[in-house]
Amino acid sequence: MATTLVDRHNLKQHARKNAKKANDGTGISRAEGWRRRGPLLPALIFTIVITQLPFLVTIWYSLRNWNLLRPDGNQFTGLQNYVDIFMDSTFRSSALNSIVITLGCVFLAMVLGIIFALLLDRKFRGQGVVRTMLITPFLIMPVAGATLWSISMLNPSFGLVNWVISLVGIPPVDWTASHPIVSILMALVWQWTPFTMLLVLAGLQSQPKDVLEAAQIDGAGWTKTFLWVTLPQLRRYIELGVLLGTIYVVNTFDQIYLMTAGGPGTASANLPFYIYQRAFLGFDIGQAAAMGVVVVIATIAIATFALRLIFRSFDAKD
């Protein structure tokens, strides 16, 4: 939706270009055009109504000082909400947390995913079982995964992690209280590593076998083959994994809500969680909406870049 403002501009530009083309006589007849468009319209209209209209309303809300706790409010205030949120240090720290959590999770999940994919990309006893084990964290309900990590694994007095580190003499750590972002990252990386692993594995398996053999015959060792043959081949898959991963992880809410509730204080709140807090616990609709708009605008930059890349991935095969 965010991107649609930009999209619409692009659409118009395209339309102009296409209109010129159509006038050259290469266009399809009007009736045929509608026959082709027909099957698309239900999905298109549905998506526009459900995803675009609410965002227009969000923009409207963001220009009003609407706080459910102050019945006298709800007037037009122009850009005051935007000024306020940029003065709000929690908004800035949440934005920073969003970046740290997203990049940290995607990077670590990608590194682990590459390691797992390389280990899986060879014939060995129990290959199928290991693969099944490794994809399972992605299938576990995120709410269940978050409570599993925050209680069973990371609880300071009976968590499994503290028991394991006690075996090597490390004193117990109150993970979610003293290292909230690290704790959230553990649960997130655990959940998203299977995703990157599957993408990288698909990339590895699409490698032409003869190229690998040729590299071996030329006497390239494993490291050299990996660096000069495999990695370039994987680039497209890694890029796709990073970008799709970013799109999904940047919206993380479940883990933060359940593991730290953004705390201690607001130390581990990311933007989705902070906006949720402002809207549903602070009842400050105007400010929450303004934050939403800012997040959407920030997403445009990533999204346009991501989309171009995804299209390149698709068109490579079309």
Binding site: M1, A2, T3, T4, D7, L11, A43, L44, T47, T51, Q52, L53, P54, F55, V57, T58, Y61, I247, V250, N251, F253, L271, P272, I275, Y276, A279, I285, A288, A289, G292, V293, V295, V296, T299, I302, A303, A306, L307, I310
Partner: peptide, 16 residues
């Protein structure tokens, strides 16, 4: 357009 709606943060539309 379709895919761009997927990138939109859900929090931005939850209030409306």
């Amino acid at each position: 357009f379709f895919i761009s709606t997927k990138m939109l943060p859900v929090v931005a539309v939850i209030m409306p």
